[in-house]
Design a protein around this nucleic acid. Structure first.
Length: 428
RNA sequence: GGAGGUGUGGCCGAGUGGUUUAAGGCACUGGUCUUGAAAACCAGCGACGGUUUGCGCCGUCCGUGAGUUCGAAUCUCACCACCUCCGCCA
């Protein structure tokens, strides 16, 4: 959520910055809504002040035993008038709030301007794609004999669900454990275990709602519908970030660095034709997530750190990748700046997203009322960051494709062997 | 699932319709005193919004939301969370 003060004081500048990410701010609508709000709020508060003063008079008069019928008559209509004024104000305020929740964040000045992914800027490449002396197979063909089972997944749950069996399930689990261990032991994150079902208020906090409901899975209780809407998490960013919702942290508590391994559920509405083969795009996938809650002066440093933490996993697994700065037009809703990590997939002969690290600035903090007490004792919004470290399913895909052998076996990356009892090769 | 109970500022806690403008205490901050510290004493000390160049002024907030009333922390209803006991359960 943007600071409404910024819209009031500098509407055109905000509109220009939003235009760079392809969002058209309706400045006329804001000006008229805001004008209404101001008038209605002033009127409501005046009536409230009158009611308070009059009620006080009545109380005093009654205590003295005076006749209060004159005053009572004077305020006979005040109640109705006030009620009407309150409703009018609340209606406009609700419209203003609802509208504010749909406005994306302002891009940071260091973000390249562009319309779509074509405008993204490569920052660096790390590792050299391996050359194969046999015909490269994709992860579906490599994985099938090792226990990658799409048919059973489809039988159980439909398209975009997958069953992992035996060695490939173990490899998947080893990847997640390796990631968690790295982030907790080497990068200073606190390991968390959090709910997979959340109330809608958490989703407003991190920005999935109100705009992206169609990407979520909504759940209902058996028997009766709950009073609040609940959803399966699409990322543990939601739960990790919302741990600081509605709190005032001490400056000394910052930065807070959290990590969790969780399943993620995405409906993938609107992407029916894309990545239908394999486990690149699933309704359910595992991810190890990193979240940082930091002092506002240090969030861009923290973003660089976090990208390094995600890169450390790819480096340790010796997977070739590149780092890309997303341009204004390709960034997510709440981000001020985003780096994507793209891993080399030899069968696709291209780099594919495996991590996305974003500095959300105070965008989520303002929605969540997540603050800290600064050096002067004032409450200020924290900044929040999140990044995948990494998407486990896609990492599995990358390992299968990059480590495949001519005989159909897959070499286990050295870093993972301790998690698999020293196993060096899958299959063979 | 059944029965009972509880929700008040950072914390404890008083408050059952009207000077509550939320008592009192703890914690915290500043000051006096002291060689220094502690103690004691004095003072300050919530959040959010509106308005104002500023001092300030106004409004809202006692788990959440509705309602009754000229007036609600206090009365009514619903919901949420927590606690105790019973049942069930991985």
């Amino acid at each position: 959520m943007l600071d409404i003060q910024l819209l009031r004081s500098d509407l055109n500048a905000v509109a220009d910055r939003l235009a760079s990410r392809g969002y058209t701010l309706d400045t006329d609508a804001f000006a008229s809504l805001e004008g209404e709000r101001k008038a209605l709020q002033t009127r409501m508060q005046e009536l409230q002040a009158r009611r308070n003063a009059t009620s006080k008079q009545i109380g005093e008069a009654k205590r003295k035993g005076d006749d209060v019928s004159a005053i009572m008559a004077e305020v006979a209509n005040l109640g109705d008038e006030l009620k009407a004024a309150e409703i009018a104000f609340e209606t406009v305020q609700a419209r203003l709030d609802a509208w504010l929740l749909t406005i994306p964040n302002l891009p940071h000045e260091s973000v390249p301007v562009g319309d779509d992914e074509g405008g993204n800027v490569e920052v660096r490449r790390v590792g050299v794609p391996r050359s194969f002396d046999f015909e490269v197979r994709d992860h579906v063909d490599v994985g099938a004999p090792l226990g990658l089972d799409f048919e059973t997944g489809a039988k159980l749950s439909g398209a975009r669900f997958t069953v992992l069996r035996g060695p490939i399930a173990q490899l998947h689990r080893a990847l997640a454990q390796f990631m968690l261990n790295t982030h907790t032991l080497k990068h200073g994150y606190t390991e968390m275990y959090t709910p997979y079902i959340v109330n809608d208020s958490a989703l407003y906090g991190t920005g999935q709602l109100p705009k992206f409901a169609e990407d979520m899975f909504k759940v209902t209780r058996g028997g009766d519908e709950g009073t609040v809407d609940q959803y399966l998490i699409s990322t543990s960013e939601i739960t990790l970030t919302n741990t600081v919702r509605e709190s005032v942290l001490k400056a000394a508590e910052l930065p807070i660095k959290l990590t969790a391994h969780s399943p993620c559920f995405r409906s993938e509405a609107g992407s029916y034709g894309r990545d239908t083969r394999g486990m690149i795009r699933q309704h359910q996938f595992d991810k190890v997530e990193m979240v940082q809650v930091v002092h506002p002066d240090r969030s861009f440093e923290a973003l660089e750190d976090m990208v390094g933490h995600a890169e450390a996993i790819l480096k340790a697994l010796e997977l070739p990748y590149r780092v890309v700065t997303l341009c204004t037009g390709d960034m997510g809703f709440g981000a001020t700046k985003t780096y994507d990590l793209e891993v080399w997939l030899p069968a696709q002969n291209t780099y594919r997203e495996i991590s996305s690290c974003s500095n959300m600035g105070d965008f989520q903090a303002r929605r969540m009322m997540a603050r800290f007490k600064d050096e002067d004792g004032k409450n200020r919004y924290v900044h929040t960051l999140n990044g995948s470290g990494l998407a486990v399913g896609r990492t599995l895909v990358a390992v299968l494709e990059n480590y495949q052998n001519a005989d159909g076996s897959v070499t286990v990356p050295t870093a993972l062997r301790p998690y698999l009892g020293g196993l060096e090769v899958l299959g063979a």
